[in-house]
Amino acid sequence: MTLQPVIQGKAYVLGDNIDTDQIIPAQYLTFNPAIPEEYRQFGKYALAGVPAPQGGLPKGHVPFHAPGDEFVSPYRIIVAGRNFGCGSSREHAPVALDAAGIKAVVAEFYARIFFRNSVNGGYLIPFESVKRLCDTVCTGDELRLDVAAGKLENLTARESYELRPLGEVAPILEAGGIFPYARSKGLLKA
């Protein structure tokens, strides 16, 4: 993945403390993400552990996948509250979201290992919002994320929201992950 300058698509909204067991339940960790066909399978089970009333806020009970495509979700950006990705260190969590077509998550803040895995593996962009957005944005809203400017527009609600700068992880995301980054810096043989 290289950094897309603009990400546009529908939002899927979740609450606080969405842990990695909700993002990808443990029984699906038997797939090996290093095998492309199995990587694709993770898309099918992404967010399978989120209890239905908490999936797709504010109403809840919104399926993450649409009929006709069991692997790739129609949603492109996840909007969530505090401590997104807490719990286990499983890299299968950002893998599952990537396999399901998620390009960015906008949360208040992240659990450390999920953030690191998202950046170092180059799976998705973990943005932090300045204000809590999971009570503002509705599942299905059309969002436009200007990655370079760090600006999020809600085309449905005609609002825009401020995001925190990506800071020191921006060059790693731009390179596409820790391996291409380290090669570009001469830390690894090209």
């Binding site: 290093a34 499983r90 170092n120 593996g121 820790i178």
Partner: peptide
């Protein structure tokens, strides 16, 4: 370092121990 979040258990031995993902571990 370990590919498991509870790797922090080993901090009980006066060392720095933390969990990482597959990409970091591969590196």
């Amino acid at each position: 370092l370990g590919t498991d979040s509870h790797t922090c258990t080993a901090g009980a031995f006066g060392e720095f121990a933390t969990g990482i993902g597959n990409t970091d571990a591969g590196f």
